[in-house]
């Protein structure tokens, strides 16, 4: 598994110049409202992860990866672990940038930053938990269309929900409860969602011929 993760890391590294430039542009253009980085950084890392799928497909890597491990589960697991690693690194990065900028601007609110980062992280984890099984079922090229559909659907559904829930948001005890225990709930929920997603991905992948 280590070898397969390293392969993806090296692939990302081979694009390192582009990544730094893009992150730098992010930082400059949105320096006023630095909180959007909380979502943009991890989202960007997901794009990098999806790119590794494209490389794998283009280079017909999967067939070889299966011979390297003789275990399709490990191939899937490596991809999930790699993705989570990337997400955590970029979320931490976003967290740090937020704190630094908050310090400079004198409006540092660690609690808010933490919950923002965690919420962003959770949103993206849900997104990839839906995406990865689709990628393993249909391949990355076809899955791209689904990415768009899911993005629109999520925006629409969430937008609709928020508009309707908004009225009694602050008084709603469930929301309050969620908000208080966010730091516990989100990791647990994430793990459950990711694990189910992993099982489905494996089911698709195990039936595939390369």
């Amino acid at each position: 598994m280590k070898g397969l993760i390293l392969k993806d890391l090296l692939l990302v590294k081979s694009n390192i110049r582009t990544i730094i430039i893009v992150l730098f542009i992010f930082l400059i253009t949105i320096f006023n409202d630095v909180s959007s980085i909380t979502l943009l950084f991890p989202l960007f890392s997901i794009i990098m992860c999806l790119t590794t799928f494209s490389y794998d497909e283009y280079n017909k890597w999967d067939a070889y990866a299966i011979t390297l491990t003789n275990n399709r589960k490990l191939v899937i697991k490596s991809k999930y672990v790699f993705t989570i690693m990337m997400l955590i690194i970029t979320s931490l990065l976003a967290f740090i940038v937020n704190i630094i900028v908050g310090n400079i601007n004198g409006n540092l609110n660690i609690e808010e930053i933490t919950s923002n980062v965690l919420e962003g992280l959770f949103g993206i984890l849900v997104f990839i938990s839906i995406m990865y099984p689709i990628i393993y079922k249909f391949g990355i090229e076809k899955a791209r269309i689904f990415i768009l559909v899911i993005c629109f659907a999520l925006t629409f559904v969430l937008g609709y929900l928020f508009r309707n829930i908004d009225i009694n948001m602050s008084s709603n005890s469930i929301i309050k409860f969620l908000d208080t225990y966010l730091i516990v709930i989100i990791p647990i929920l994430s793990i459950i969602v990711l694990f189910i997603s992993y099982l489905i991905s494996y089911k698709f992948y195990s039936k595939k011929d390369f």
Binding site: K2, G3, L4, L6, K7, L10, L11, S14, N15, Y55, D56, Y58, N59, K60, W61, A63, Y64, T67, L68, T69
Partner: peptide, 26 residues
């Protein structure tokens, strides 16, 4: 088992050094 498949399968963006590092971990 050592394997060579019919079509090329190494990630094209990597070099022989990278592949060595990967295999060392495999």
């Amino acid at each position: 088992i050592g394997v060579v498949l019919d079509n090329m399968f190494f990630p094209e963006l990597l070099n022989a050094n990278d592949i060595g590092k990967i295999m060392k971990n495999v």
